[in-house]
């Protein structure tokens, strides 16, 4: 049985869509059911995705902008057909899973809308998610519920902004650190 069908059987209705690119399988699950889905994938005897490789954040803002630009011209022609669709979720988080037994890989994706940027932390399943989640909090500004120590990882404390968002300029907004002696607070 191929991986796609096994994943569908395991996740049942939680698998919103299953895509395949270049032999890699990506399954999208609802953000609210993330921890349950990952637990199911980890403990299902046919899958056993028991190793978390990485957690990846993606900002889709530029993709929408391009689509909007194309869509505007099309929209102008039939104005009566304007239906107010809810904006597509801006952020995506991808969990890279690996099965140590069969060496199969799977990507689990959730979508995070801009107005509700809180996701359940998976550190209770894999402690490996600890720093990647902190990094996403730092660079994208997504909160993780239940993370033991959620604070900035790569940028310094007091840095404003989230650099990997698409609306943040590459060369920054001129943030600098003060170059005076300061007794740094030690936790």
């Amino acid at each position: 049985m191929n991986l796609e069908r096994r994943v569908r059987i395991c996740l049942e209705s939680n698998a919103l869509s299953v895509e395949e690119t270049a032999g890699d399988i990506t399954v999208t699950v609802p953000a609210g059911r993330l921890v349950d889905s990952l637990m199911a994938l980890k403990e299902h005897p046919d899958l056993k995705f028991d190793f978390l490789s990485d957690v990846i954040g993606i900002d889709n803002l530029d993709l929408f902008r391009k689509k909007k630009g194309k869509g505007k011209a099309a929209e102008e022609e039939p104005p009566e057909k304007k239906v107010k669709a809810p904006p597509p979720p801006r952020f995506e988080i991808v969990y890279l899973l690996l099965s140590l037994e069969s060496s199969e890989r799977l990507r689990v994706k959730i979508q995070v809308p801009e107005n509700d940027m809180t996701v359940d932390s998976v550190t209770s399943i894999w402690r490996a998610a600890s720093w990647p989640e902190r990094e996403i909090y730092d660079l994208f500004g997504i909160n993780f519920l239940g993370h033991p120590d959620l604070k900035r990882l790569l940028m310094w404390d007091g840095f404003k902004g989230h650099p990997l968002r698409k609306d943040y300029p590459l060369e920054g907004k001129g943030e600098t650190r003060r170059l005076v002696y300061e007794q740094e607070k030690i936790r």
Partner: peptide
């Protein structure tokens, strides 16, 4: 599309994810 590939680098699994 999205793709992930990893090799055994001297330190361990070095992977690149590209969208």
């Amino acid at each position: 599309g999205e793709v992930y590939h990893a090799i055994e680098s001297p330190n361990g699994e070095l992977g690149f994810f590209i969208k």
